[in-house]
């Protein structure tokens, strides 16, 4: 069976100087190709943001690129998704999706380090690998998914 539609999306998070991060998200499908690059500070403030669209049949998507500048200076924190979709989502959902991929990348990039330290210790003694122990290593993840939710909190 031949695929009728395909999409590829990738995000890369690079560690910079002074705990800054550079996040690059790129996506291409049969109608669109574009990328967004974000530079964040150690407090997740957006220091730089740029976008490129290589292919799109929507003129509005090209016009939306200038709106990215409005996200500069904002912090990736609660409510950011609404800001992104409110600003860009209605005119170019593809571009909004690329910004959100960068955001997801920034958050996951920040959790890799603590997880790399905590997980080998926890897996060493599987009988002690409890949700309580996991939450004590990663308190910011509490109630975010099944692994970080105690039975009583469900």
């Amino acid at each position: 069976m031949v695929l009728t539609y395909t999409k590829n999306k990738e995000v890369h998070v690079f560690e910079g100087e002074n705990r800054t991060s550079e996040i690059r998200a790129r996506m291409y499908d049969m109608c669109f190709e574009g990328e967004v690059t974000i530079k964040t500070s150690k407090t997740m403030e957006i220091l730089e943001i740029n976008g490129k669209i290589f292919r799109s049949f929507s003129v509005q998507c090209f016009e939306s690129l200038k709106l990215l500048e409005k996200l500069k200076g904002r912090r990736i924190a609660g409510g950011f998704t609404k800001i992104v979709y409110g600003l860009i989502g209605r005119t170019c959902p593809y571009l909004a999706s690329l910004v959100m991929e960068c955001v997801e990348g920034a958050i996951l990039g920040a959790t890799v380090g603590p997880l790399e330290k905590a997980l080998p210790q926890l897996w060493k003694t599987p009988e002690k690998f409890t949700k309580k122990a996991l939450i004590s290593f990663m308190p910011q993840m509490k109630n975010s998914c099944i692994a970080y939710t105690m039975e009583d909190d469900r």
């Binding site: 069976m1 009728t4 539609y5 395909t6 999409k7 590829n8 999306k9 990738e10 890369h12 690079f14």
Partner: peptide, 15 residues
């Protein structure tokens, strides 16, 4: 240095 990367692939097929 690269600290995290993610790739997603989506495919549609008319069954």
């Amino acid at each position: 240095m690269l600290k995290f990367c993610r790739t997603k692939f989506v495919g549609f097929e008319r069954e």
